[in-house]
Amino acid sequence: MIEKVVGGIVVALLTAVGRLLWKNRRHLALLRVLLTPRSRTRVSVAVLLRVHDEDHYVLFASVTRPGTFGPPGGVVKHHESAKPALERLGFEPERRARAEMRHDLRGFLPALRVLGFARWLQRGEGREAATECLRRELVEELGEVAHDELVPLAREAGFRLVRRVIDGPRKVPGEEYRQIRFFEVYDLVLDKPEAAELRTSLLALAVDVDESLVIGASRREMARGRAQAHVVLPQSAFLVGDRRVREDMTPVS
């Protein structure tokens, strides 16, 4: 009798685990957050643009981390209509000084809600499409690096998905929370003359010795975190693979 009861319990547990794994089969790496169910987790959702010529990748100066360079791109925004769903998930927006960061998908969640957030994100409801975000960020960042003349080209460009990366969960040095970052990396689609011209212009800026806000870096330099005298941000590694090799750097705003 006892053996039957124990066997039934084991079968029920295995069934429950199987259902959990199947339900979250696209996000198995995130199951680690269940080991610390009472903790908070910082999440962010971002897109990156890969512009390169063989082993030479274009990086822009960062506004939020002065003195550093990383891929063009930025954080995806949610729509007003998504607020009820995010509130049900316990999403707490991260407070940032810059007004343009309003509605960013960057904030804190209870650890037990991270998987639900990942499934909501996958559905694509109530938020910018990745390509919409990338075009907006590229237009904005071209102004920040003082090349507004390229903005009309960026508005006409299309993008092709290269990879999706879930970075984490990982402990943040000096903080009590863990962090998970969702990235999508895109290439320019060179089916329009505007896109081809944009790529050519960015590659030319990256090799211009008089250009201080756009640089080029190799795979090795991105892994090392330094391209000549310039500091390279860790997320640059996702331009060439799905693993980072260095810890993130804290923004100043």
Rank of each mutant, 00 (worst) to 15 (best):
V75P: 01
V75G: 11
V75Y: 07
V75I: 15
V75D: 07
V75T: 15
V75F: 10
V75N: 03
V75R: 04
V76L: 12
V76E: 00
V76Q: 00
K77S: 02
K77N: 01
K77I: 01
H78Y: 11
H78K: 01
H78R: 00
H79M: 02
H79T: 01
H79C: 00
H79Q: 05
H79W: 03
H79I: 00
E80G: 10
E80N: 06
E80S: 05
E80C: 05
S81V: 05
S81Y: 02
A82K: 08
A82H: 05
K83D: 02
K83F: 01
K83R: 15
K83A: 07
K83N: 03
K83G: 04
P84N: 11
P84C: 08
P84G: 03
P84A: 06
P84Y: 15
P84K: 04
P84D: 12
A85F: 07
A85L: 09
A85D: 05
A85I: 07
A85S: 13
A85N: 09
A85W: 02
A85M: 14
L86I: 05
L86A: 04
E87D: 14
E87R: 15
E87P: 01
R88W: 06
R88I: 06
R88E: 04
R88G: 04
L89E: 10
L89W: 02
L89G: 06
L89N: 11
L89V: 10
G90D: 07
G90E: 12
G90F: 06
F91W: 08
F91S: 01
E92H: 13
E92I: 12
P93E: 08
P93R: 15
P93W: 08
P93Q: 12
E94F: 15
E94T: 13
E94P: 14
E94N: 10
R95H: 14
R95N: 12
R95T: 11
R95K: 13
R95S: 14
R96E: 07
R96S: 09
R96M: 11
R96V: 11
R96F: 10
R96L: 14
R96P: 04
R96W: 07
R96H: 11
R96A: 07
A97Q: 13
A97G: 06
A97W: 12
A97F: 13
A97I: 11
R98H: 10
R98K: 13
A99D: 09
A99N: 06
A99K: 14
E100P: 06
E100Y: 15
E100I: 06
M101N: 12
M101L: 15
R102V: 14
H103W: 06
H103V: 04
H103L: 05
D104V: 01
D104Y: 05
D104S: 12
D104P: 03
L105S: 05
R106G: 01
R106T: 03
R106Y: 04
R106Q: 07
R106E: 07
R106W: 04
G107M: 14
G107I: 14
L109Y: 03
L109S: 04
L109Q: 03
L109G: 01
